[in-house]
C-alpha cells in the first residue's frame, strides 16, 4: 500500500509526537512512581489524584487548560516565548506535551506496580553488600522494574497515537505540524467525498497498532528472559 505525501506526513508526525511524548514523560513517570510506591506521606492522596486526573478528565478540558496556561498571551506561555523562545501552541511539540500529560497516568501506574512487586529483601541484600540508595536504584530497582517500565511506555505510546481532543484544542489542526493520524481522519471526514481517505487512514492506524502490539510482545519476552523469568 503506497501512501500519499499527506498520509505519510500524518503517519510520521503521529509517530514522532508519541515517541517524544512517551520519552519525555518517562523519567518523570519513574520518579513519580518511585515516590508513590511502598511509601506513605501526608500529601500522597493529593499527588495520587493529580497523577490520575488526566485519566478521568475529558481530553478537551486538558487541551483547554494547556491553552489557558501556555497560550502566547497566557502568563507561562508568554514567559516561555520571550525568555526561552519556546512556543507550544500551533506546534508539534505542543501536541507531544498534550499527549504526554494525557498518557502520564498509564506510565505511572505500570511502573508503580512493577516497583511494588520487587522483593524488598533484594534491596537489603544489596545494602549489606555495600550498595547505597542510588546504586541500588540504578542497578537493582530499574532493571527489575524494566518489564513494568516497558509495559507502561508501550501503553502510553499506543494511547498517545489515538489522542485527539487535547491536541486539537491545544495546538489546532495544522497539516504537517499538528495533524496526526486521528486529526487527519477527522479532517478527511469533514471534507466532501473524503470517506475513502478516512478509510485508508484508518487502515494505516490499524496496521500501526498491530505492528506495535507485536513489537511490544517481543520486547517484553526478551526483557523477561534477561531477568530469568
Amino acid at each position: 500500500m503506497l501512501l500519499t505525501p499527506a498520509e505519510s506526513q500524518a503517519l510520521f508526525l503521529s509517530l514522532r509526537v508519541s515517541l517524544v511524548a512517551v520519552g519525555a514523560a518517562l523519567p518523570f513517570a519513574v520518579v513519580t512512581a518511585a515516590l508513590l510506591a511502598n511509601r506513605r506521606f501526608p500529601a500522597k492522596p493529593v499527588v495520587d489524584g493529580l497523577v490520575h486526573l488526566p485519566l478521568v478528565l475529558p481530553p478537551v478540558v486538558i487541551g483547554y487548560l494547556l491553552l489557558l496556561m501556555l497560550g502566547t498571551r497566557a502568563p507561562v506561555g508568554a514567559w516561555l516565548l520571550h525568555t526561552l523562545g519556546i512556543r507550544f501552541v500551533f506546534s508539534w511539540t505542543g501536541a507531544a506535551l498534550a499527549s504526554a500529560i494525557i498518557t502520564f497516568p498509564f506510565q505511572v501506574r505500570a511502573i508503580r506496580l512493577a516497583l511494588e512487586s520487587i522483593d524488598a529483601g533484594l534491596g537489603e541484600a544489596a545494602e549489606t553488600l555495600g550498595a547505597g540508595w542510588f546504586d541500588r536504584f540504578v542497578n537493582l530497582t530499574l532493571p527489575l522494574a524494566l518489564p513494568g517500565i516497558l509495559a507502561g511506555a508501550i501503553t502510553a505510546f499506543a494511547a498517545s497515537l489515538g489522542e485527539f481532543g487535547a491536541i486539537i484544542t491545544f495546538v489546532s489542526n495544522i497539516p504537517g505540524e499538528t495533524r496526526t493520524l486521528p486529526l487527519a481522519i477527522y479532517s478527511a471526514l469533514q471534507a466532501p467525498g473524503g470517506e475513502d481517505e478516512a478509510l485508508r487512514l484508518s487502515l494505516i492506524s490499524i496496521v500501526l497498532a498491530l505492528i506495535g502490539v507485536t513489537l511490544a510482545e517481543i520486547a517484553d519476552r526478551r526483557v523477561r528472559a534477561s531477568l530469568g523469568r
Partner: peptide, 10 residues
C-alpha cells in the same frame, strides 16, 4: 547469607 539466598535475578 539470607535463608532465601536473595540472589539478584537479573
Amino acid at each position: 547469607v539470607f535463608q532465601d539466598s536473595r540472589l539478584f535475578p537479573h
